[in-house]
Design a protein around this nucleic acid. Structure first.
Lengths: 231, 231
DNA sequence: CTGGAGCCGTAAGGGATCCGTCAGTGCGAC
DNA sequence: GTCGCACTGACGGATCCCTTACGGCTCCAG
């Protein structure tokens, strides 16, 4: 049972490490938001203990990023007692919220309650299809042509487009949904964007851009990402 | 989304009922531990809001009893702030613990956090008939001919037509209903559309389009979808 | 029995829409 | 300036929706 502890205060970090270790957990530490994201992606923790007041990324940003590819339980520990902060964290994807100072017994009990439900985790934040590999955590796309792994350069808009599709495998993604999530609301009639960026994605990711295999279109409705057979 | 509220204080009960109702939840009330158990068993709530200080059964007993047959999320609301009570409730099977007095916003957020996770095990939105498989969630239709699963291409209108029929199995769907839901209001007299698209659907989905088995017509009234025997 | 009126199923064609593609412009960063 | 990115506009070509037409069927009046 592995727990990722993210806090910028070395003292609290040490105290939590000792406490959790005493309860039999394996502990991984992170002192910044970006480090926490990195560890969450590659250490596959069974639970994330997250402090909100870290430098760099805000706590809410960290939660949103993790929720982008993982369903790991997130327990927020924060000095902020305002209801607004709690609601924001919980609605972004946190599973529980404890305010400092907290009692060790209660924290341990809440950790047990969250890990108890543990569903089969180890959901890889990497999606593969054809000769392409998409790393949702690192925002990186690579392609192996001729046994050689080469990075694929995507523009921010291209990435946002691809991300929406990859997170809904085998499922129709309507034009409306794509426009809302990539360009934001208010672009309901700009379906020309979709044609344009889909063409660019196919040019960069499909073996035969003229006859796509993984990035398909459902005429009149939207687009669809089909991973197909693992290769 | 149904919530069972168990509390012995009528005032709190009424307040919670109003609060939850305002958030769009269906609310079931119980004023004793035994009543709560009964309701949890027969009402199939999506979440249980449980007060610890009820007469009859103790809160921990109620939690243990529910956990004996159900994994429904349990949120404990209690006046007891002692760490011992929290640990006992959480370790018995509760998923969260909030102390009175509590803020309405925070409680609502914690309810959302608990119900969010429970959604995935929804009903299987797949309908099968003959050699056809309709996946309503993924918006996909496949047909297995000769042991090979092949995708069926449907136009948007064909899909809308099929969707209405599939969502009303073994029931007569009147021409009026179909026209309203597929073409929108104002096409009450365009029953010719129905003949046309029904013919196309039968051609794509029926083994013998001339002698349909699953997509039947009720002369003068409308059409009917009959899944028939599972195959 | 016979003929006609609806209703249903089928086929073919035209117009509108949608899709893929390719230039080209504007704008900000370096 | 130069480069990269977002966006615009326009063009064939494919697809889709609707219209129109025709034949078969049932049912009922004559």
């Amino acid at each position: 049972m592995k727990i990722l502890v993210a806090d910028d205060d070395p003292q609290i970090l040490a105290a939590l490490r000792i406490l959790l270790h005493a309860h039999g957990y394996e502990v991984v530490l992170a002192r910044t938001g970006t480090a926490a994201l990195d560890a969450a992606a590659h250490e596959h923790p069974d639970l994330v203990l997250l402090d909100l007041g870290m430098p760099g990324l805000s706590g809410v940003q960290v939660i949103r990023a993790i929720r982008g590819w993982s369903t790991v339980p997130i327990l927020v520990v924060s000095g902020r007692t305002e209801s607004y902060d709690k609601v924001a964290a919980l609605d972004t994807g946190a599973d529980d919220y404890v305010t400092k100072p907290f009692l060790a017994d209660e924290l341990a009990a809440r950790i047990r309650a969250l890990t108890r439900r543990n569903v089969p985790d180890a959901e890889e934040p990497v999606v593969r299809f054809g000769d392409v590999e998409v790393d949702l955590a690192r925002h990186r796309v690579t392609r192996s042509v001729g046994g050689q792994e080469t990075a694929v350069r995507l523009t921010p808009t291209e990435w946002a487009f691809l991300e929406v599709l990859v997170r809904n495998p085998d499922r129709l993604v309507t034009r409306q949904y794509l426009l809302d999530h990539v360009w934001g609301p208010g672009h309901a009639n700009d379906s020309g964007y979709l044609r344009l960026y889909m063409a660019q994605l196919r040019k960069k990711l499909e073996r035969e851009p003229a006859e796509p295999v993984h990035l398909l279109t459902d005429p009149g409705l939207g687009y669809r990402f089909v991973p197909g057979a693992r290769s």
